[in-house]
């Protein structure tokens, strides 16, 4: 497993895909955090409260929703790319145990996804706190809460990235998989969450977003209003369960298919 895992990390480091998506996630996060911070308390833009309030500061420092979706996309690209470029053949010749390859991919994805989440959280936090400090506001949120949002973004992005590996193995078609992830994050969870708020915390993006402190007002994609967050550990367990379920479904179906 060590060799397969090393190879998966090396694959991520030797193409621009992971770095490009991570860069995009951080850049979009920075843009959203800047827009939110700049307009906070003015009633313009996304109309978030002042950064002097806990809600306003939370909206700004936890504007990591897009990074969470980007992490899930990265997970799907990690596996779909192997089929798109026909590099899956080489991977399965190196290690014929396909479940082991899938597990190594999920682990590597979890690590790189966590880094994406952490980078996005650090960016949003830096921007939000920077604007608050520039306006002379006192820190409206306890430091522990801000750290928890950052940890939630890292853990949530890592687990969503791992779940993306399973989803990518099931879908295989790269463009289709990317569209499916965005459709899920921007449409399915909003609709389901809006109609069944009790179910929403158990949906993967919503669970990760709530861990990261994303709100119905500040997230892109947003989460449905009125959803009550699960405890941090329970939300992480939900996400891990989704990742394991998707991987298991892939392992018993598409991963066993002929590589023609």
């Amino acid at each position: 497993m060590n060799a397969t895992l090393r190879a998966e990390f090396l694959k991520l480091r030797t193409t621009k895909t992971a770095a490009g998506l991570a860069g995009l996630a951080v850049a979009v996060t920075a843009l959203i955090a800047t827009l939110e911070s700049a307009t906070a308390g003015t009633g313009r833009g996304m109309a978030i409260p002042s950064l002097a309030t806990p809600t306003g500061l939370r909206d700004a420092v936890a504007s990591t929703g897009f990074a969470l979706i980007a992490a899930a996309v990265l997970g799907t690209v990690i596996t779909c790319g192997e089929f798109r470029h026909k590099t899956a053949t080489g991977a399965y010749l190196d290690q014929p145990d396909r479940k082991r390859v899938l597990a190594a991919k999920a682990m590597a994805a979890a690590a790189i996804g966590a880094l994406v989440g952490l980078a996005a959280a650090a960016t949003a936090t830096g921007i939000g706190l920077g604007f608050a400090a520039a306006r002379g506001y006192p820190l409206a949120l306890p430091a522990a809460t801000i750290i928890r949002y950052g940890a939630g973004a890292a853990l949530g992005a890592g687990l969503l990235c791992a779940a993306g590996v399973g989803a990518g193995s099931l879908i295989r078609h790269q463009i289709g998989a990317i569209i499916a992830v965005f459709a899920w994050g921007f449409a399915v969870e909003l609709v389901v969450g809006g109609t069944a708020t009790a179910v929403a915390p158990y949906l993967p993006y919503t669970a990760a977003a709530l861990m990261a402190g994303v709100t119905s007002g500040g997230g892109i994609p947003p989460i449905a209003r009125g959803v009550i967050a699960l405890p941090f550990a329970a939300a992480a367990a939900v996400l891990a369960g989704v990742a394991v379920l998707l991987a298991a479904a892939a392992a018993t179906t598409t991963v066993r298919r002929d590589i023609a």
Binding site: T4, A7, T14, T15, K86, T87, G90, L93, D94
Partner: peptide, 25 residues
């Protein structure tokens, strides 16, 4: 094994392709 000339990631260099094979095996 040589199966198909298309089994390469277009963005990965020649050396990195071989490094991945070495790491995996």
């Amino acid at each position: 094994v040589v199966l198909e000339a298309s089994g390469l990631h277009p963005g990965r260099t020649v050396r990195d392709h071989l490094r991945v094979r070495c790491a995996a095996t």
